[in-house]
Amino acid sequence: MEWLANFWATYSTLVYSIGVYALVALSIWLTLACGLLSLANAAFMGIGAYVSALLSLQAGWPFWAVLVAAGLAPAFVALIIGIPTLRLSGVYLAMATLAFGEVVRIIVLNLDITGGPEGLNGIPQSTRGWHIVAILGLAIYGLARMRRSRTGRAFEAIREDEVAASLMGIHVGRHKLFAFVLGAAMAGVAGGLNAHATFFISPREYGFENAVDILTMVVFGGIGGLVGPMVGAAILTLLPELLRFLHEFRGIFNGLVLVLVVLFLPKGIWEPRRIRALFGLGPREG
Protein backbone atom coordinates (compact mmCIF):
# COMPACT_ATOMS: atom_id res chain seq x y z
CA MET A 1 0.00 0.00 0.00
CA GLU A 2 2.83 2.31 0.83
CA TRP A 3 4.23 1.63 -2.59
CA LEU A 4 0.90 2.67 -4.14
CA ALA A 5 0.81 5.87 -2.12
CA ASN A 6 4.31 6.74 -3.26
CA PHE A 7 3.46 5.96 -6.83
CA TRP A 8 0.37 8.16 -6.66
CA ALA A 9 2.26 11.03 -5.07
CA THR A 10 4.76 10.95 -7.90
CA TYR A 11 2.53 10.19 -10.83
CA SER A 12 -0.95 11.56 -10.05
CA THR A 13 -0.31 14.59 -12.25
CA LEU A 14 0.62 12.30 -15.11
CA VAL A 15 -2.51 10.18 -14.67
CA TYR A 16 -4.63 13.32 -14.53
CA SER A 17 -2.98 14.55 -17.72
CA ILE A 18 -3.86 11.33 -19.51
CA GLY A 19 -7.51 11.80 -18.59
CA VAL A 20 -7.53 15.46 -19.56
CA TYR A 21 -5.81 14.84 -22.88
CA ALA A 22 -8.13 11.92 -23.60
CA LEU A 23 -10.98 14.41 -23.31
CA VAL A 24 -9.24 16.92 -25.59
CA ALA A 25 -8.42 14.17 -28.09
CA LEU A 26 -12.11 13.22 -28.19
CA SER A 27 -12.99 16.86 -28.83
CA ILE A 28 -10.73 16.89 -31.91
CA TRP A 29 -12.04 13.51 -32.96
CA LEU A 30 -15.53 15.03 -33.01
CA THR A 31 -14.52 17.74 -35.47
CA LEU A 32 -12.53 15.28 -37.59
CA ALA A 33 -15.51 12.92 -37.64
CA CYS A 34 -17.39 15.72 -39.38
CA GLY A 35 -14.56 16.28 -41.86
CA LEU A 36 -13.20 19.42 -40.21
CA LEU A 37 -9.45 19.75 -39.80
CA SER A 38 -9.45 22.24 -36.95
CA LEU A 39 -6.41 23.28 -34.94
CA ALA A 40 -8.36 25.57 -32.64
CA ASN A 41 -8.96 23.12 -29.81
CA ALA A 42 -5.74 23.92 -27.95
CA ALA A 43 -6.87 27.54 -27.86
CA PHE A 44 -10.35 26.50 -26.72
CA MET A 45 -8.69 24.47 -23.98
CA GLY A 46 -6.73 27.58 -23.04
CA ILE A 47 -9.85 29.73 -22.95
CA GLY A 48 -11.50 27.17 -20.67
CA ALA A 49 -8.42 27.04 -18.45
CA TYR A 50 -8.10 30.80 -18.10
CA VAL A 51 -11.80 31.54 -17.67
CA SER A 52 -12.13 28.89 -15.00
CA ALA A 53 -8.93 29.86 -13.20
CA LEU A 54 -9.95 33.52 -13.10
CA LEU A 55 -13.42 32.69 -11.84
CA SER A 56 -11.89 30.59 -9.07
CA LEU A 57 -9.22 33.10 -8.14
CA GLN A 58 -11.06 36.41 -8.53
CA ALA A 59 -14.74 35.61 -8.15
CA GLY A 60 -14.52 32.59 -5.86
CA TRP A 61 -17.10 30.59 -7.80
CA PRO A 62 -17.70 26.99 -6.72
CA PHE A 63 -15.82 24.40 -8.74
CA TRP A 64 -18.83 22.96 -10.56
CA ALA A 65 -19.91 26.42 -11.77
CA VAL A 66 -16.36 27.13 -12.86
CA LEU A 67 -16.35 23.97 -14.99
CA VAL A 68 -19.65 24.91 -16.61
CA ALA A 69 -18.20 28.31 -17.49
CA ALA A 70 -15.05 26.60 -18.80
CA GLY A 71 -17.26 24.78 -21.29
CA LEU A 72 -19.59 27.63 -22.20
CA ALA A 73 -16.99 30.35 -22.80
CA PRO A 74 -15.08 28.57 -25.60
CA ALA A 75 -18.37 27.24 -27.02
CA PHE A 76 -19.55 30.82 -27.39
CA VAL A 77 -16.29 31.87 -29.03
CA ALA A 78 -16.51 28.85 -31.34
CA LEU A 79 -20.01 29.86 -32.37
CA ILE A 80 -18.81 33.33 -33.36
CA ILE A 81 -15.68 32.30 -35.25
CA GLY A 82 -17.26 29.13 -36.62
CA ILE A 83 -19.92 30.85 -38.71
CA PRO A 84 -17.43 32.56 -41.04
CA THR A 85 -14.54 30.06 -40.92
CA LEU A 86 -16.41 26.78 -41.34
CA ARG A 87 -17.10 27.74 -44.95
CA LEU A 88 -13.46 26.85 -45.48
CA SER A 89 -12.38 23.28 -45.79
CA GLY A 90 -9.27 21.14 -45.56
CA VAL A 91 -6.00 22.92 -45.21
CA TYR A 92 -7.59 26.38 -45.40
CA LEU A 93 -9.66 25.70 -42.33
CA ALA A 94 -6.55 24.39 -40.59
CA MET A 95 -4.77 27.66 -41.35
CA ALA A 96 -7.68 29.83 -40.19
CA THR A 97 -8.05 27.93 -36.92
CA LEU A 98 -4.29 27.99 -36.42
CA ALA A 99 -4.33 31.77 -36.81
CA PHE A 100 -7.18 31.95 -34.33
CA GLY A 101 -5.11 29.96 -31.85
CA GLU A 102 -2.22 32.40 -32.20
CA VAL A 103 -4.56 35.36 -31.71
CA VAL A 104 -5.83 33.83 -28.47
CA ARG A 105 -2.29 33.11 -27.28
CA ILE A 106 -1.12 36.64 -27.98
CA ILE A 107 -4.15 38.19 -26.31
CA VAL A 108 -3.57 36.08 -23.20
CA LEU A 109 0.11 36.98 -23.31
CA ASN A 110 -0.62 40.72 -23.28
CA LEU A 111 -3.55 41.11 -20.92
CA ASP A 112 -2.97 42.09 -17.31
CA ILE A 113 -5.77 40.01 -15.90
CA THR A 114 -4.29 36.80 -17.31
CA GLY A 115 -0.92 37.50 -15.75
CA GLY A 116 0.79 37.92 -19.12
CA PRO A 117 3.71 35.62 -19.85
CA GLU A 118 3.97 34.63 -16.19
CA GLY A 119 0.55 33.02 -16.30
CA LEU A 120 -1.67 32.42 -13.32
CA ASN A 121 -0.42 31.01 -10.05
CA GLY A 122 -2.10 29.52 -7.03
CA ILE A 123 -5.17 28.08 -8.70
CA PRO A 124 -7.05 26.00 -6.12
CA GLN A 125 -6.41 22.30 -6.71
CA SER A 126 -10.04 21.29 -6.83
CA THR A 127 -9.81 18.61 -9.52
CA ARG A 128 -10.15 15.09 -8.14
CA GLY A 129 -9.59 11.90 -10.01
CA TRP A 130 -13.28 11.07 -10.01
CA HIS A 131 -14.11 14.42 -11.63
CA ILE A 132 -12.00 13.50 -14.62
CA VAL A 133 -13.32 9.94 -14.74
CA ALA A 134 -16.94 11.11 -14.51
CA ILE A 135 -16.61 13.80 -17.17
CA LEU A 136 -14.63 11.57 -19.50
CA GLY A 137 -17.21 8.82 -18.98
CA LEU A 138 -20.03 11.22 -19.79
CA ALA A 139 -18.22 12.36 -22.94
CA ILE A 140 -17.60 8.77 -24.08
CA TYR A 141 -21.21 7.80 -23.44
CA GLY A 142 -22.57 10.88 -25.20
CA LEU A 143 -20.35 10.48 -28.26
CA ALA A 144 -21.01 6.74 -28.47
CA ARG A 145 -24.77 7.33 -28.42
CA MET A 146 -24.44 10.10 -30.96
CA ARG A 147 -22.55 7.85 -33.35
CA ARG A 148 -25.49 5.47 -33.38
CA SER A 149 -28.00 8.22 -34.14
CA ARG A 150 -28.89 10.16 -37.26
CA THR A 151 -26.51 12.93 -36.18
CA GLY A 152 -23.59 10.50 -36.16
CA ARG A 153 -24.52 9.19 -39.59
CA ALA A 154 -24.87 12.75 -40.86
CA PHE A 155 -21.36 13.58 -39.60
CA GLU A 156 -19.92 10.56 -41.34
CA ALA A 157 -21.79 11.35 -44.54
CA ILE A 158 -20.51 14.93 -44.47
CA ARG A 159 -16.96 13.69 -43.95
CA GLU A 160 -17.20 11.35 -46.92
CA ASP A 161 -19.02 13.57 -49.39
CA GLU A 162 -20.42 16.95 -48.46
CA VAL A 163 -22.41 17.45 -51.65
CA ALA A 164 -24.05 14.05 -51.50
CA ALA A 165 -24.82 14.60 -47.81
CA SER A 166 -26.53 17.92 -48.49
CA LEU A 167 -28.66 16.26 -51.16
CA MET A 168 -29.76 13.70 -48.58
CA GLY A 169 -31.46 16.61 -46.82
CA ILE A 170 -28.68 17.24 -44.30
CA HIS A 171 -28.02 20.84 -43.32
CA VAL A 172 -24.24 20.60 -43.69
CA GLY A 173 -23.34 24.00 -42.23
CA ARG A 174 -25.40 23.48 -39.09
CA HIS A 175 -23.90 20.06 -38.41
CA LYS A 176 -20.37 21.34 -38.85
CA LEU A 177 -21.02 24.24 -36.52
CA PHE A 178 -22.51 21.87 -33.96
CA ALA A 179 -19.44 19.62 -34.06
CA PHE A 180 -17.13 22.62 -33.81
CA VAL A 181 -18.99 24.20 -30.86
CA LEU A 182 -19.41 20.94 -28.97
CA GLY A 183 -15.72 20.15 -29.52
CA ALA A 184 -14.81 23.60 -28.17
CA ALA A 185 -16.94 23.02 -25.07
CA MET A 186 -15.27 19.65 -24.42
CA ALA A 187 -11.80 21.13 -24.87
CA GLY A 188 -12.77 24.01 -22.57
CA VAL A 189 -13.91 21.68 -19.79
CA ALA A 190 -10.67 19.75 -20.19
CA GLY A 191 -8.82 23.06 -19.82
CA GLY A 192 -10.76 23.85 -16.66
CA LEU A 193 -9.93 20.44 -15.18
CA ASN A 194 -6.30 20.85 -16.13
CA ALA A 195 -5.99 24.32 -14.60
CA HIS A 196 -7.43 23.08 -11.30
CA ALA A 197 -5.16 20.05 -11.27
CA THR A 198 -1.84 21.77 -11.95
CA PHE A 199 -1.90 24.87 -9.75
CA PHE A 200 -0.30 26.96 -12.48
CA ILE A 201 -1.12 27.81 -16.10
CA SER A 202 0.70 29.88 -18.70
CA PRO A 203 0.01 30.86 -22.33
CA ARG A 204 2.76 28.49 -23.53
CA GLU A 205 0.70 25.43 -22.72
CA TYR A 206 -2.07 26.28 -25.18
CA GLY A 207 -0.12 27.39 -28.22
CA PHE A 208 0.73 25.95 -31.60
CA GLU A 209 2.82 23.07 -30.28
CA ASN A 210 -0.02 21.90 -28.13
CA ALA A 211 -2.47 22.13 -31.02
CA VAL A 212 -0.26 19.87 -33.10
CA ASP A 213 0.30 17.48 -30.18
CA ILE A 214 -3.44 17.03 -29.71
CA LEU A 215 -4.00 16.40 -33.40
CA THR A 216 -1.12 13.92 -33.36
CA MET A 217 -2.73 12.00 -30.50
CA VAL A 218 -5.85 11.43 -32.57
CA VAL A 219 -4.08 10.53 -35.80
CA PHE A 220 -1.65 8.32 -33.89
CA GLY A 221 -4.41 6.55 -32.00
CA GLY A 222 -6.77 6.20 -34.95
CA ILE A 223 -9.81 8.21 -35.96
CA GLY A 224 -12.03 5.22 -36.71
CA GLY A 225 -13.63 5.20 -33.29
CA LEU A 226 -13.64 6.62 -29.77
CA VAL A 227 -10.99 4.29 -28.36
CA GLY A 228 -8.25 5.34 -30.77
CA PRO A 229 -8.00 9.00 -29.70
CA MET A 230 -7.89 8.00 -26.04
CA VAL A 231 -5.22 5.37 -26.64
CA GLY A 232 -3.27 7.99 -28.58
CA ALA A 233 -3.64 10.52 -25.76
CA ALA A 234 -2.46 7.97 -23.20
CA ILE A 235 0.55 6.80 -25.22
CA LEU A 236 1.72 10.26 -26.25
CA THR A 237 1.37 11.53 -22.69
CA LEU A 238 3.28 8.56 -21.28
CA LEU A 239 5.92 8.19 -23.96
CA PRO A 240 8.07 11.19 -22.96
CA GLU A 241 8.04 9.89 -19.37
CA LEU A 242 8.88 6.32 -20.33
CA LEU A 243 11.74 7.57 -22.49
CA ARG A 244 13.28 9.57 -19.67
CA PHE A 245 16.23 7.17 -19.51
CA LEU A 246 17.24 8.32 -23.00
CA HIS A 247 17.86 11.81 -21.59
CA GLU A 248 18.51 14.33 -24.34
CA PHE A 249 17.75 11.80 -27.09
CA ARG A 250 14.18 11.17 -26.06
CA GLY A 251 12.76 13.89 -28.31
CA ILE A 252 14.33 12.16 -31.29
CA PHE A 253 13.03 8.76 -30.25
CA ASN A 254 9.58 10.19 -29.62
CA GLY A 255 9.54 11.60 -33.15
CA LEU A 256 10.80 8.32 -34.58
CA VAL A 257 7.94 6.38 -32.99
CA LEU A 258 5.46 8.81 -34.52
CA VAL A 259 6.96 8.51 -37.97
CA LEU A 260 6.95 4.70 -37.79
CA VAL A 261 3.32 4.56 -36.72
CA VAL A 262 2.19 6.93 -39.44
CA LEU A 263 4.19 4.99 -42.03
CA PHE A 264 3.16 1.48 -41.07
CA LEU A 265 -0.21 1.99 -39.39
CA PRO A 266 -1.75 4.81 -41.39
CA LYS A 267 -5.13 4.27 -39.75
CA GLY A 268 -3.64 4.62 -36.28
CA ILE A 269 -2.69 2.19 -33.56
CA TRP A 270 -6.25 1.35 -32.65
CA GLU A 271 -8.00 0.09 -35.74
CA PRO A 272 -10.85 -2.22 -34.69
CA ARG A 273 -10.82 -4.33 -37.84
CA ARG A 274 -7.09 -5.02 -37.73
CA ILE A 275 -7.13 -5.82 -34.03
CA ARG A 276 -9.99 -8.29 -34.48
CA ALA A 277 -8.03 -9.96 -37.27
CA LEU A 278 -4.98 -10.10 -35.01
CA PHE A 279 -6.90 -12.08 -32.42
CA GLY A 280 -8.33 -14.38 -35.06
CA LEU A 281 -11.86 -13.02 -34.85
CA GLY A 282 -13.94 -12.69 -37.98
CA PRO A 283 -14.39 -9.34 -39.68
CA ARG A 284 -17.32 -7.37 -38.44
CA GLU A 285 -18.45 -3.84 -39.00
CA GLY A 286 -18.39 -1.48 -36.08
Partner: peptide
Protein backbone atom coordinates in the same frame (compact mmCIF):
# COMPACT_ATOMS: atom_id res chain seq x y z
CA UNK B 1 -21.26 9.36 -54.95
CA UNK B 2 -22.19 6.83 -52.31
CA UNK B 3 -20.67 6.87 -48.82
CA UNK B 4 -18.08 4.18 -49.35
CA UNK B 5 -16.96 3.67 -45.79
CA UNK B 6 -20.50 3.13 -44.54
CA UNK B 7 -22.59 -0.01 -44.84
CA UNK B 8 -25.38 -0.23 -47.39
CA UNK B 9 -27.92 0.08 -44.59
CA UNK B 10 -26.24 3.19 -43.19
CA UNK B 11 -26.10 4.73 -46.65
CA UNK B 12 -29.84 4.39 -47.04
CA UNK B 13 -30.48 5.58 -43.49
CA UNK B 14 -28.53 8.77 -44.19
CA UNK B 15 -31.19 9.44 -46.81
CA UNK B 16 -33.83 9.25 -44.08
CA UNK B 17 -32.14 11.96 -42.05
CA UNK B 18 -35.21 14.20 -41.91
CA UNK B 19 -37.71 11.42 -41.63
CA UNK B 20 -36.34 10.05 -38.36
CA UNK B 21 -38.15 12.35 -35.98
CA UNK B 22 -36.65 12.13 -32.55
Amino acid sequence: RIFKEMTLLENVMVGMHDKLGY
